[in-house]
Design a protein around this nucleic acid. Sequence first.
DNA 1: CCGGATACTTTCCATTGGGAAGTAGAAACC
DNA 2: GGTTTCTACTTCCCAATGGAAAGTATCCGG
Lengths: 125, 125
Amino acid sequence: MVLSPDGTRQSTPEVDALVREIIERVADKWTMLVLEALEEHGTVRFTRLGELVGGVSQKMLTKTLRQMESDGLIVRTVYPVIPPHVDYQLTELGHTLSAAFCGVWQWVEKNYDAVHSARRAFAQK
Amino acid sequence: MVLSPDGTRQSTPEVDALVREIIERVADKWTMLVLEALEEHGTVRFTRLGELVGGVSQKMLTKTLRQMESDGLIVRTVYPVIPPHVDYQLTELGHTLSAAFCGVWQWVEKNYDAVHSARRAFAQK
DNA sequence: CCGGATACTTTCCATTGGGAAGTAGAAACC
DNA sequence: GGTTTCTACTTCCCAATGGAAAGTATCCGG
C-alpha cells in the first residue's frame, strides 16, 4: 500500500476511484435513512424497518438492504419459519458509518431553519 | 420553538419532516461531490466544476447548483461579459455542511478496503 | 463571415423507482 | 376441509429521472 510519510494513504487515481464509488453508494437517501433507523432501533424486521424509514417501497427497501449487506454494513438473519421472519442489524462497520454520518444529522437539525429561510429568500427573486 | 430541558430541539413530527426533507436533498451524490470540489478548490467556474466533480452531465450540474444555491449552500456570481463567466463558491453555511461531511469522507478513506472485501465475500455465496 | 469561447437549455432515449398485485407455505379460524 | 392470515419478498407496469448530445446566445478575433 502507498503511504505518505505520516502514515495516511496517498491520493492516487485508483484510490480516488474506489473512494468515489463508495461515496456514490453511501450518499443515497435510503441507505442513510436505513442506517439511522437501525442505529436507533437495533435489530429490526423487514416490515418494521419499512415503517421506520417511511415512504420507501418494498422494492427499494429490499434493494437497499441487499446492497448494505453486500457492503458489510448490516447482517441479515433469516429464521426458517412460516410465516417468514428476517431481521436486520448493523455490523461494527455499519455502526462506524452511522457515527460518521452523525455530524450530518446534527448539521441538519441545527441548520434546517437557515436552509428554509434561504429558500424563501431565493424563491422571491 | 419547542425545547427540551437541556436546550436542544425536541423531535416533533413537524421537525422530523423538515429534517427528513433536507436529508433527502443533501444525501445526494452530486451535491456531496460538488460540496467537496468547492471546499477543496474555492471559487470555481461552471465548466471547471464539472471537470472536478467528474462524470456529471451539464444538466445535472446545473440542477444541483441551482438547488444548492436556493438552499443557501453556495453563491453564484455572474459576470455580465461575453463569453459568459459565472463562478461558484461555498457560503458559510456550505462550509459548515462540508465540515459535517468530513467524517463520512474519512470513513470512506479508512474503510473502503473493508467494504470491498465484504463485497468479495458476499459475491461468492 | 466563420469559428471559438462559456454557460447553459432542450430533446430524445435508456434506466430507475413507485404502486400494486402476486407468491410461498404452514397455521389458525370457520 | 376450505379459507384467510402472516411475512418477506418478487414481478409487472407505468411515470419520473438522468445521461448524451445537439442547440442557443453573444461578441470578438481572424
